[in-house]
Design a protein around this nucleic acid. Structure first.
Length: 377
RNA sequence: GGUGGGGUGGCCGAGUGGCUAAUGGCAGCAGACUGUAAAUCUGCCGGGUUUACGCCCUACGUAGGUUCGAAUCCUACCCCCACCA
């Protein structure tokens, strides 16, 4: 359980197989986000049919509603939501960042003012572990301190060191919780340090000296820093990450980010963009980004993406999709979400195939050329 | 026929002498979104011209009038709504 096998590598890009309690994940892999225990708007069966192998849930949001005790009483997040494949829960660390106006942070943890009812909700490394244990996803994430991408060295060092101290507490509490059933859930640490190379290196070293872990996440990227800065962090980290562990780049997932991340050794990605952009009518396609509502689609009988095999593209015209958006029918949002997920899943699958046949670099180069000439592919 | 209310940009609807090409909203057009407080947010939105500041034209039912100046005041007419006969 929690085993990762490297199936192949090509110019730094990797293909692997991750075995989790609820199934196998072949990497590189894109993981759709399902904050509230559902990928927004989509039926689990539809999500499965996109080829999705693993999805996320969120500690903080599920703690607020319905509460982890409710989910535990109904058999855990898998049974509750009927998603039977692997699942990973984020720790609430991202909410320290995204709900910055509603939080107070100290060494012990973070106190949020609930956006639901104004109540005080304290999240600590320990409670984040307890909640995630109750949710019972295959992978729990450490509770980390995330800062905006442009944060100074001084701020970043502070957050990075706190994240390490919190990691010790996460590890301890998670070990207690999992003592009786160690094969139920694994805990992954998160590398922080902003865009500062020395801090990233120290963060990773600190993580690896604490435990071999079963996977390592890289957090705090795609939060406002320039893309080259993110690439640099990944390049610097790659040689020092354990080869035999999956590497998860948290919260990152535009098409080019997948390609660039994979090229730098990343195995796992998650991102809300596929579903959020889908709901907002923006699609990634093999012929470039498409704004579904654009007037040019009004009488278009073409599929959203002629090169796609998803349930949206094989059945509906752009003209119909545009109509659905114009009249605000939910189906439009669902279909484009579905397409965007399928797009990223296929992109990761294509990358995997290229890694396995040893042609990744050439493929990636061609892909970039198409992408930056606006023909996303 | 009488009395009262009303006619504003594609639609709805503010504005009652200059700061009004005219608040808002809708529709329309374009864009953003990266471990989801997001089915959200931003920009454009009479026409012409200018790289731009700007300038010109047209516009608040119609036609006149008052005024330095009118969507706003006056007169007549047309149309719509309500009630009365």
């Amino acid at each position: 359980m929690f085993e990762f096998t490297l199936d192949g590598s090509s110019d730094g890009a990797r293909a692997g197989t991750l075995v989790l309690p609820h199934g196998i994940v072949q990497t590189p892999c894109f993981m759709p986000v399902g904050t509230h225990g559902t990928v927004r708007g989509l039926h689990p069966a539809e999500v499965e049919r996109t080829g999705t192998q693993i999805i996320l849930g969120n500690t903080y949001h599920l703690h607020l509603r319905p509460g982890e005790e409710t989910i535990a009483a109904l058999g855990g997040l898998h049974r509750f939501s009927t998603w039977s494949k692997p699942m990973l829960t984020d720790s609430g660390g991202f909410q320290v960042f995204s709900l910055s106006g509603l939080k107070r942070l100290d060494e012990n943890g973070v106190e949020f003012t609930s956006h639901i009812d104004g109540s005080r909700r304290r999240l600590t490394p320990e409670s984040a572990m307890e909640i995630q244990w109750a949710l019972a996803a295959d992978v729990a994430m450490a509770f980390d301190h995330l800062l905006p991408g442009q944060s100074s060295h001084a701020d970043a060092i502070d957050a990075m060191e706190r994240t390490l101290r919190w990691l010790d507490r996460c590890k301890l509490r998670h070990a207690e919780l999992s003592a009786e059933s160690p094969l139920r859930q694994t805990l992954w640490p998160i590398v922080q340090g902003g865009v500062h190379a020395d801090l990233r290196a120290r963060s990773l070293a600190g993580i690896l000296e604490r435990d071999p872990w079963t996977g390592v996440a890289i957090g705090g990227l795609s939060v406002g820093e320039p893309k080259p800065a993110m690439h640099k962090v990944l390049e610097d980290l790659a040689p020092h990450l354990p080869v035999e562990r999956p590497r998860y780049l948290m919260g990152v997932g535009f098409p080019d980010d997948l390609v660039e991340g994979i090229a730098r050794g990343v195995d796992l990605f998650d991102c809300v963009a596929a579903t959020r952009n889908g709901r907002h009518g923006s699609a990634w396609t093999t012929v470039g980004q498409v704004q579904v509502r654009a007037a040019t689609n009004r009488v278009s009988d073409l599929p959203l993406d002629p090169g796609c095999d998803c349930e949206c593209c094989t059945r509906f015209s752009r003209g119909y999709l545009r109509h659905l958006f114009v009249v605000e029918e939910q189906l439009g949002q669902r279909l484009v979400s579905l397409h965007n997920i399928r797009f990223l899943v296929r992109l990761a699958e294509a990358a995997r195939a290229r890694v396995l046949d040893g042609t990744f670099s050439r493929w990636a180069a061609e892909w970039r050329t198409r992408y930056f000439s606006k023909g996303i592919s």
